[in-house]
Computed example of a mutant assay.
Amino acid sequence: MIDKKSPLPLYYQVEEHIKQTIQSEELQPGDALPSERELSENFQISRMTVRQAITNLVNQGFLFREKGRGTFVSNQKFEQNLQGLTSFTEDMKARQLVPGTKLLHFEIFPVEKDIQERLSLGEGELIYKIKRLRLANEEPIALETSYLPVKLIPGLTPDILEKSLYSYIEDELQLKIGHATQTVEAALISDEDSKQLQVKKGVPVLLIQRETFLENGTPLELVRSSYRADKYKFKIDIERK
């Protein structure tokens, strides 16, 4: 509970207590949080302190407010470790979630100059442009646009893209995926993409840009993904060298 003699701020102690009840599943996603008055009486602290703790948890994504109704427990964010190269399908299955894909766009066209250089292609060579909506347990999580050389992946079809592209590349084509470089930054979602991800216009998203290479160093794909910031977070373990 709350230790008023502790050097830790009272609002922080309240935050940690509420987090613990969520993480222990005592409070489930969608459950209503007790009112500020109830919490202040329970902890014997001011409502202002309770309000600060709740506001911080709303900002962190643990809770959400509905006007006139109260404060509720949010669905917890999906976490991805940035230290390994995995497909979205592999990542979701590792979390005991059901991966899903909705193909929004599939096109073959001559490569444009900026993509040509990054994929080490000759002028006029063909590439796939693929846009997919990624889902976890039928909930929209990310929008992903990929560019891949047709000569590396001949015969790619929309049916194949409903499943794991990486599995097709490695299991069917016997190509070995080696490594990738990836950047993560904050961005504002476009009006068009907000509809697909079922979020409000202009909300922040996590913009992920990745270049993937085969084991022999051949560029395989360019990917630009917009992940819902309210549903997804990335984790990395860092060692001191």
Rank of each mutant, 00 (worst) to 15 (best):
M92D: 00
L119H: 01
L33C: 10
I127R: 02
L82Q: 11
L135K: 10
R37F: 06
L119F: 02
R51K: 13
I115E: 12
P29G: 03
N59M: 12
N75R: 09
I130R: 11
G100H: 12
G61N: 00
V58G: 02
P34R: 08
K19T: 05
R95Q: 15
G124F: 02
L133Q: 08
D31P: 02
V73I: 13
A136Q: 09
G68R: 09
G70N: 05
V111Q: 09
K102M: 09
E25W: 01
E41R: 14
R132A: 03
K129Y: 07
N81E: 05
L97G: 05
I130C: 10
F43T: 04
I22T: 01
T55W: 04
Q52K: 15
L104R: 09
R37K: 12
L133T: 06
S24I: 03
L27E: 00
T86L: 15
S35G: 06
E107R: 14
S35P: 05
K19C: 01
Q23S: 07
K93E: 11
L85G: 03
Q52L: 13
L63D: 00
G122V: 05
F62M: 02
K67L: 11
K131N: 09
F62I: 01
R47A: 08
Y128L: 12
G68P: 10
Q76G: 02
I18K: 06
Q80E: 12
N59Y: 08
N42L: 14
S120K: 15
G122Q: 08
S74A: 11
R47Q: 15
E79L: 11
F72E: 00
E38R: 08
I127T: 09
T49Y: 02
T49E: 12
R47F: 08
R65L: 07
E125A: 08
S120G: 11
Y128P: 04
V111P: 02
E36R: 13
A136E: 09
K131I: 07
K131C: 02
F64D: 00
L103I: 14
T89L: 14
V50L: 05
Q116W: 06
Q44L: 15
T55F: 03
E66A: 07
K67E: 10
G122I: 06
Q96V: 12
V98G: 05
Q23R: 09
K93T: 13
S46P: 10
F72A: 00
D114S: 13
E36K: 12
D31K: 09
K113P: 03
F72M: 03
Q83L: 11
R134L: 15
L121D: 01
S46E: 14
G100C: 10
F72K: 01
S120A: 13
G70E: 05
G84P: 08
D114N: 15
E38T: 07
P110R: 11
V98A: 12
